[in-house]
Protein backbone atom coordinates (compact mmCIF):
# COMPACT_ATOMS: atom_id res chain seq x y z
CA UNK A 1 0.00 0.00 0.00
CA UNK A 2 2.80 2.39 -0.76
CA UNK A 3 0.74 4.37 -3.25
CA UNK A 4 -1.67 5.60 -0.55
CA UNK A 5 -1.01 7.49 2.63
CA UNK A 6 -2.79 6.11 5.66
CA UNK A 7 -5.22 8.51 7.38
CA UNK A 8 -4.28 7.18 10.77
CA UNK A 9 -1.27 5.16 11.74
CA UNK A 10 0.39 3.84 14.85
CA UNK A 11 4.08 2.89 14.72
CA UNK A 12 5.74 0.49 17.16
CA UNK A 13 3.26 1.32 19.88
CA UNK A 14 3.59 -0.31 23.30
CA UNK A 15 1.53 0.13 26.42
CA UNK A 16 2.51 -1.02 29.86
CA UNK A 17 0.45 -0.94 33.02
CA UNK A 18 3.15 -1.13 35.64
CA UNK A 19 5.07 -4.23 34.71
CA UNK A 20 2.21 -5.72 32.71
CA UNK A 21 2.66 -5.42 28.97
CA UNK A 22 -0.77 -4.87 27.43
CA UNK A 23 0.49 -3.98 23.97
CA UNK A 24 3.90 -4.62 22.52
CA UNK A 25 5.38 -3.09 19.35
CA UNK A 26 2.11 -2.79 17.46
CA UNK A 27 2.10 -1.03 14.10
CA UNK A 28 -1.05 -0.54 12.06
CA UNK A 29 -2.29 1.65 9.23
CA UNK A 30 -5.85 2.75 8.67
CA UNK A 31 -6.96 4.15 5.31
CA UNK A 32 -9.81 6.46 4.35
CA UNK A 33 -12.69 4.68 2.63
CA UNK A 34 -11.71 1.32 4.05
CA UNK A 35 -12.97 -0.90 6.82
CA UNK A 36 -10.16 -2.23 8.96
CA UNK A 37 -11.21 -5.08 11.17
CA UNK A 38 -9.37 -5.44 14.42
CA UNK A 39 -9.79 -8.98 15.57
CA UNK A 40 -8.64 -10.88 18.58
CA UNK A 41 -9.73 -12.94 21.51
CA UNK A 42 -10.39 -11.57 24.96
CA UNK A 43 -7.17 -10.16 26.39
CA UNK A 44 -5.54 -9.83 22.99
CA UNK A 45 -5.05 -6.10 23.47
CA UNK A 46 -7.93 -4.90 21.29
CA UNK A 47 -9.40 -2.62 23.90
CA UNK A 48 -6.01 -1.21 24.87
CA UNK A 49 -5.33 -0.38 21.23
CA UNK A 50 -8.67 1.34 20.66
CA UNK A 51 -8.25 3.32 23.87
CA UNK A 52 -4.93 4.55 22.49
CA UNK A 53 -6.53 5.32 19.13
CA UNK A 54 -9.41 7.20 20.74
CA UNK A 55 -7.20 9.24 23.07
CA UNK A 56 -8.16 7.60 26.37
CA UNK A 57 -4.66 6.15 26.92
CA UNK A 58 -1.32 7.54 25.84
CA UNK A 59 1.11 4.91 24.50
CA UNK A 60 4.16 4.16 26.66
CA UNK A 61 6.24 3.96 23.51
CA UNK A 62 5.69 4.55 19.82
CA UNK A 63 4.11 7.19 17.60
CA UNK A 64 0.54 8.18 16.75
CA UNK A 65 0.31 9.67 13.27
CA UNK A 66 -2.83 11.36 11.96
CA UNK A 67 -3.00 12.76 8.42
CA UNK A 68 0.75 12.37 8.08
CA UNK A 69 1.58 14.32 11.24
CA UNK A 70 2.72 12.98 14.59
CA UNK A 71 0.21 13.91 17.29
CA UNK A 72 -0.18 13.38 21.02
CA UNK A 73 -3.75 13.01 22.23
CA UNK A 74 -4.50 13.81 25.84
CA UNK A 75 -8.23 13.09 25.90
CA UNK A 76 -11.11 11.66 23.87
CA UNK A 77 -12.29 15.27 23.39
CA UNK A 78 -9.09 16.11 21.53
CA UNK A 79 -9.50 13.06 19.33
CA UNK A 80 -13.12 13.99 18.61
CA UNK A 81 -12.12 17.55 17.71
CA UNK A 82 -9.69 16.12 15.13
CA UNK A 83 -12.42 13.92 13.68
CA UNK A 84 -11.65 10.64 15.41
CA UNK A 85 -14.98 9.43 16.80
CA UNK A 86 -15.43 6.35 18.94
CA UNK A 87 -18.72 4.53 19.39
CA UNK A 88 -18.52 2.49 22.56
CA UNK A 89 -20.67 -0.53 23.12
CA UNK A 90 -22.97 1.06 25.69
CA UNK A 91 -21.50 4.41 26.54
CA UNK A 92 -22.73 6.57 23.69
CA UNK A 93 -26.45 7.08 24.19
CA UNK A 94 -28.65 8.04 27.14
CA UNK A 95 -31.55 5.54 27.23
CA UNK A 96 -34.14 7.81 28.86
CA UNK A 97 -33.54 10.63 26.41
CA UNK A 98 -35.29 11.06 23.07
CA UNK A 99 -33.65 10.25 19.75
CA UNK A 100 -33.16 13.89 18.76
CA UNK A 101 -31.77 14.96 22.14
CA UNK A 102 -29.31 12.07 22.03
CA UNK A 103 -28.29 12.76 18.45
CA UNK A 104 -27.35 16.38 19.14
CA UNK A 105 -26.07 15.92 22.70
CA UNK A 106 -23.00 18.09 23.19
CA UNK A 107 -23.52 19.69 19.73
CA UNK A 108 -26.93 21.30 20.19
CA UNK A 109 -28.18 23.50 17.35
CA UNK A 110 -29.27 26.88 18.68
CA UNK A 111 -31.64 29.56 17.56
CA UNK A 112 -31.62 33.16 18.68
CA UNK A 113 -34.73 34.62 20.33
CA UNK A 114 -33.71 38.26 20.71
CA UNK A 115 -30.91 38.36 23.26
CA UNK A 116 -31.29 34.74 24.36
CA UNK A 117 -30.48 31.46 22.66
CA UNK A 118 -32.77 28.46 22.65
CA UNK A 119 -32.47 24.93 21.37
CA UNK A 120 -33.52 24.73 17.71
CA UNK A 121 -35.78 21.74 18.30
CA UNK A 122 -37.53 21.89 14.94
CA UNK A 123 -34.21 21.71 13.12
CA UNK A 124 -33.03 18.89 15.42
CA UNK A 125 -36.12 16.75 14.86
CA UNK A 126 -36.18 17.27 11.09
CA UNK A 127 -32.44 16.63 10.76
CA UNK A 128 -32.59 13.46 12.82
CA UNK A 129 -35.43 12.16 10.73
CA UNK A 130 -33.73 12.88 7.41
CA UNK A 131 -30.18 11.86 8.41
CA UNK A 132 -31.36 8.58 9.86
CA UNK A 133 -33.69 8.12 6.91
CA UNK A 134 -30.70 8.34 4.55
CA UNK A 135 -29.04 5.64 6.63
CA UNK A 136 -32.12 3.48 6.27
CA UNK A 137 -33.46 3.92 9.80
CA UNK A 138 -37.04 5.10 9.74
CA UNK A 139 -37.88 7.23 12.73
CA UNK A 140 -41.59 7.64 13.14
CA UNK A 141 -41.32 9.65 16.28
CA UNK A 142 -38.11 11.55 17.14
CA UNK A 143 -39.44 11.98 20.70
CA UNK A 144 -39.15 8.25 21.31
CA UNK A 145 -36.67 7.46 24.11
CA UNK A 146 -33.58 5.68 22.79
CA UNK A 147 -33.97 3.05 25.51
CA UNK A 148 -37.08 1.74 23.77
CA UNK A 149 -35.21 1.05 20.53
CA UNK A 150 -33.49 -2.17 19.57
CA UNK A 151 -29.76 -2.71 20.07
CA UNK A 152 -29.04 -2.54 16.35
CA UNK A 153 -30.99 0.69 15.95
CA UNK A 154 -29.08 2.24 18.83
CA UNK A 155 -25.71 1.36 17.35
CA UNK A 156 -26.87 2.68 14.00
CA UNK A 157 -27.93 6.00 15.56
CA UNK A 158 -24.54 6.36 17.24
CA UNK A 159 -22.76 5.63 13.94
CA UNK A 160 -24.99 8.06 12.02
CA UNK A 161 -24.27 10.73 14.58
CA UNK A 162 -20.51 10.34 14.21
CA UNK A 163 -20.82 10.57 10.41
CA UNK A 164 -23.13 13.60 10.60
CA UNK A 165 -20.70 15.50 12.81
CA UNK A 166 -17.92 15.03 10.29
CA UNK A 167 -15.86 12.19 11.71
CA UNK A 168 -12.93 11.13 9.51
CA UNK A 169 -12.11 8.07 11.55
CA UNK A 170 -14.86 5.97 13.07
CA UNK A 171 -13.82 3.52 15.78
CA UNK A 172 -16.50 0.95 16.59
CA UNK A 173 -16.00 -1.07 19.74
CA UNK A 174 -17.73 -4.44 19.37
CA UNK A 175 -20.85 -2.92 17.79
CA UNK A 176 -22.29 -6.31 16.86
CA UNK A 177 -21.63 -8.11 20.14
CA UNK A 178 -24.81 -9.32 21.84
CA UNK A 179 -26.93 -8.64 18.74
CA UNK A 180 -29.07 -11.09 16.81
CA UNK A 181 -28.40 -11.87 13.15
CA UNK A 182 -30.75 -9.22 11.72
CA UNK A 183 -29.67 -6.61 14.21
CA UNK A 184 -26.00 -7.26 13.46
CA UNK A 185 -26.84 -7.05 9.75
CA UNK A 186 -28.27 -3.56 10.29
CA UNK A 187 -25.04 -2.45 11.93
CA UNK A 188 -22.86 -3.98 9.16
CA UNK A 189 -25.02 -2.14 6.66
CA UNK A 190 -24.12 1.16 8.33
CA UNK A 191 -20.45 0.27 8.49
CA UNK A 192 -20.46 -0.04 4.71
CA UNK A 193 -22.35 3.27 4.44
CA UNK A 194 -19.68 4.98 6.53
CA UNK A 195 -16.94 3.49 4.34
CA UNK A 196 -18.68 4.68 1.18
CA UNK A 197 -18.70 8.19 2.61
CA UNK A 198 -14.91 8.01 2.78
CA UNK A 199 -14.41 7.39 6.48
CA UNK A 200 -11.67 5.19 7.83
CA UNK A 201 -13.67 2.66 9.79
CA UNK A 202 -11.97 0.66 12.53
CA UNK A 203 -14.24 -2.23 13.39
CA UNK A 204 -13.37 -4.14 16.54
CA UNK A 205 -14.92 -7.57 16.81
CA UNK A 206 -14.16 -11.10 17.84
CA UNK A 207 -16.59 -12.50 15.30
CA UNK A 208 -14.97 -13.33 11.92
CA UNK A 209 -18.44 -13.86 10.44
CA UNK A 210 -19.16 -10.18 11.00
CA UNK A 211 -15.69 -9.02 9.96
CA UNK A 212 -15.47 -10.92 6.67
CA UNK A 213 -18.47 -9.39 4.80
CA UNK A 214 -17.35 -5.79 5.42
CA UNK A 215 -13.58 -5.82 5.93
CA UNK A 216 -10.97 -4.57 3.46
CA UNK A 217 -8.08 -5.12 5.79
CA UNK A 218 -7.74 -7.42 8.78
CA UNK A 219 -5.43 -7.04 11.75
CA UNK A 220 -5.35 -9.93 14.15
CA UNK A 221 -4.04 -9.25 17.63
CA UNK A 222 -2.82 -11.89 20.01
CA UNK A 223 -1.43 -11.38 23.50
CA UNK A 224 -0.61 -7.76 22.85
CA UNK A 225 1.13 -8.30 19.51
CA UNK A 226 0.11 -8.21 15.86
CA UNK A 227 -0.33 -11.83 14.82
CA UNK A 228 -1.23 -11.00 11.24
CA UNK A 229 -1.99 -8.02 9.03
CA UNK A 230 -3.73 -8.97 5.80
CA UNK A 231 -5.45 -7.33 2.87
CA UNK A 232 -8.72 -8.91 1.92
CA UNK A 233 -7.26 -10.62 -1.18
CA UNK A 234 -4.48 -12.18 0.87
CA UNK A 235 -6.66 -14.63 2.71
CA UNK A 236 -9.92 -16.59 2.61
CA UNK A 237 -12.78 -16.62 5.07
CA UNK A 238 -11.57 -20.01 6.27
CA UNK A 239 -8.10 -18.58 6.92
CA UNK A 240 -9.61 -15.79 8.94
CA UNK A 241 -11.71 -18.18 10.97
CA UNK A 242 -8.69 -20.28 11.65
CA UNK A 243 -6.53 -17.34 12.66
CA UNK A 244 -9.23 -16.08 14.95
CA UNK A 245 -9.92 -19.39 16.57
CA UNK A 246 -6.29 -19.73 17.53
CA UNK A 247 -4.88 -21.71 14.56
CA UNK A 248 -2.45 -24.32 15.79
CA UNK A 249 -3.83 -24.21 19.30
CA UNK A 250 -7.23 -25.18 18.00
CA UNK A 251 -5.83 -28.17 16.14
CA UNK A 252 -4.01 -29.19 19.29
CA UNK A 253 -7.15 -28.78 21.35
CA UNK A 254 -9.12 -30.93 18.91
CA UNK A 255 -6.51 -33.68 19.17
CA UNK A 256 -6.51 -33.51 22.94
CA UNK A 257 -10.29 -33.74 23.09
CA UNK A 258 -10.32 -36.66 20.68
CA UNK A 259 -7.76 -38.42 22.86
CA UNK A 260 -9.85 -37.69 25.91
CA UNK A 261 -12.89 -39.34 24.30
CA UNK A 262 -10.94 -42.53 23.72
CA UNK A 263 -9.23 -42.62 27.09
CA UNK A 264 -10.63 -45.12 29.61
CA UNK A 265 -12.96 -43.66 32.23
CA UNK A 266 -11.43 -42.93 35.59
CA UNK A 267 -8.33 -41.31 34.25
CA UNK A 268 -10.34 -38.94 32.11
CA UNK A 269 -10.40 -35.33 33.13
CA UNK A 270 -6.89 -35.56 34.42
CA UNK A 271 -5.27 -34.56 31.19
CA UNK A 272 -3.47 -31.37 32.16
CA UNK A 273 -2.79 -30.53 28.52
CA UNK A 274 -6.40 -29.72 27.78
CA UNK A 275 -6.48 -27.25 30.62
CA UNK A 276 -3.30 -25.71 29.39
CA UNK A 277 -4.51 -25.30 25.83
CA UNK A 278 -7.82 -23.79 26.86
CA UNK A 279 -6.26 -21.26 29.16
CA UNK A 280 -3.61 -20.38 26.59
CA UNK A 281 -6.09 -19.69 23.81
Amino acid sequence: MAQKQPLLEVRHVSKMFGSVIALSDVSAQFYAGEVTCLLGDNGAGKSTLIKILSGVYQPTEGDYIFEGKKVVLNSPREALAMGIATVYQDLSLIPLMSVWRNFFLGEEPEKRFGPIKGYDIKFAKETVRSVLGQMGILIRDPDQPVGTMSGGERQSIAISRAIYFGAKVLILDEPTAALGVKQAGLVLHHIVQAKRRGLAVIFITHNPNHAWPVGDHFIILRRGRVLGDYRRDELTQADLMNLMAGGEDLVKLQQELAALLEAPLGVAGESPNVQEVISAS
Binding site: P76, L91, S92, I94, L96, M97, L105, E107
Partner: peptide
Protein backbone atom coordinates in the same frame (compact mmCIF):
# COMPACT_ATOMS: atom_id res chain seq x y z
CA UNK B 1 -31.18 15.15 31.45
CA UNK B 2 -27.90 13.70 30.20
CA UNK B 3 -26.01 14.34 33.46
CA UNK B 4 -28.72 12.46 35.34
CA UNK B 5 -29.30 9.77 32.71
CA UNK B 6 -25.67 8.71 32.32
CA UNK B 7 -22.99 11.15 33.43
CA UNK B 8 -20.16 9.14 31.84
CA UNK B 9 -21.80 8.94 28.42
CA UNK B 10 -22.56 12.65 28.66
CA UNK B 11 -18.93 13.46 29.43
CA UNK B 12 -17.76 11.31 26.49
CA UNK B 13 -19.85 13.57 24.26
CA UNK B 14 -18.42 16.73 25.74
CA UNK B 15 -21.22 17.65 28.15
Amino acid sequence: FAAGGDANAARNLGV
